Computed example of a mutant assay.
Amino acid sequence: MSRRDDAAGPRGTADRVVVADRIVTATGADGPGWLALGDGLVVDVGDGPAPTGDLVRLPLERLQGVVVPGFVDQHVHGALGVDFGGADEAGARRAAAHHQRAGSTRLVASVATASSEATVRALGVLAPLVEEGVLDGVHLEGPWLSVERRGAHDPGLLRSPEPAEVEALLEAARGTVRLVTIAPELPGAVDAIRLLVDRGVVVALGHSDCTAAEAHAAADAGATVVTHVYNGMRPLHHREPGLAGAALTDDRLAVELILDGQHVSRDAVEIARRASSGRLVLVSDAMAATGWSDGRYSIAGSEVVVEHGVAMLADGSSLAGSTGTVGAGVTRLVREHGVSLPEAVRASSATAAASLGLAGAGLGRGDRADLVVLDDQGRVGRVMRGGHWL
């Protein structure tokens, strides 16, 4: 799926209007406004308490709360006991629906490190859901990752990228791979980055022990995203800042952040937010226990224990994904960090959409009718996807 191929659909004919005292869009609009909707799209948008002209004759719905664009989660492994990497079709649909109801109206399903055979099987399940529009692509987080910074990924399954394997997985995916995370210091990684970019795939740098210079060189080769900054990379150091330092300083890189209260401290969140203004992307990194229960799970070939909603490797050596949602991250960003809603909208929808080449994610004319209604505490209330309330 090429970034160049994804465009917003044509505007249709409005069949209803929604009005709210405050609508915050990706274009910077913030105040009383209305949205004329039809055929699953935003047909028209305007400021003020109500539309005029022919639109006044349409059914009108007044929304209580603040309306923002639907969230875009480009890094999500599953929910409700389901892991996208091993799910059947029904399970993958359930996991996607859970995140959509929580406000993430657009999802890129993450498949963690596995054997080539297992990854091909996962792609066989997920590709039709991308083609149907349930998902907006597949993210391969592995197997081309660093053993030193593997996190929850089984070191026995990690390997360097070989052109034949890269091509085989892309072929199996039928053009639905939208994002690939890779450690740029691995043998053959820079060539793999160029190959993936040439195929229209967005490349992220992550689970890497690379130096800052190696990260900048990977950006030169076409990488444009950093996978969950701070996690899965060497700590920021003043003489060798590594991938984290490159993420915070290289304006070519969108910067993923897991804002679940576990993965990144408050001060580190503020450093990332201030240094990468306009490039920050909230992600959930949600694993199978999301919306489910504590217990034992498996991810990326490793056993995981979830206690009190915190996912850790069974040996306690690493966090193993999150049990949160992007919507919960938006609430935390607004309430705990005092971030303005326009900034939160950029981090939860607009920046991810831009970095992935997803058109129509900002509540502008011709965009998809994907919206979230937030209450006065910044929490997710109602969710609309493609013009339908979930």
Rank of each mutant, 00 (worst) to 15 (best):
M1V: 06
T13F: 03
A14V: 06
V24T: 06
G28Q: 12
D30N: 15
P32I: 13
G38Y: 09
G46K: 12
G48D: 01
V56S: 12
V56M: 05
L60C: 13
R62S: 10
Q74T: 10
H75F: 05
A79F: 06
V82Y: 00
A96Y: 00
A118F: 05
L123M: 10
G124I: 05
V125M: 01
E131M: 06
L135K: 00
R149T: 02
L158R: 01
V180Q: 00
D191R: 14
L196H: 07
V197Y: 03
V202Q: 04
A204I: 11
L205N: 03
G206H: 08
G222W: 11
H228G: 03
R234W: 01
P235Y: 07
L236R: 08
H237M: 01
V255R: 12
L259A: 10
S265A: 13
S277F: 14
G278Q: 11
M287Q: 11
W292Q: 08
S298W: 02
A314Q: 11
A314K: 10
G316W: 13
V334C: 06
E336K: 10
R346P: 00
S355N: 02
G360W: 05
G360D: 07
R368K: 12
V373F: 09
R379S: 13
M384F: 15
R385A: 14
R385M: 13
R385V: 14
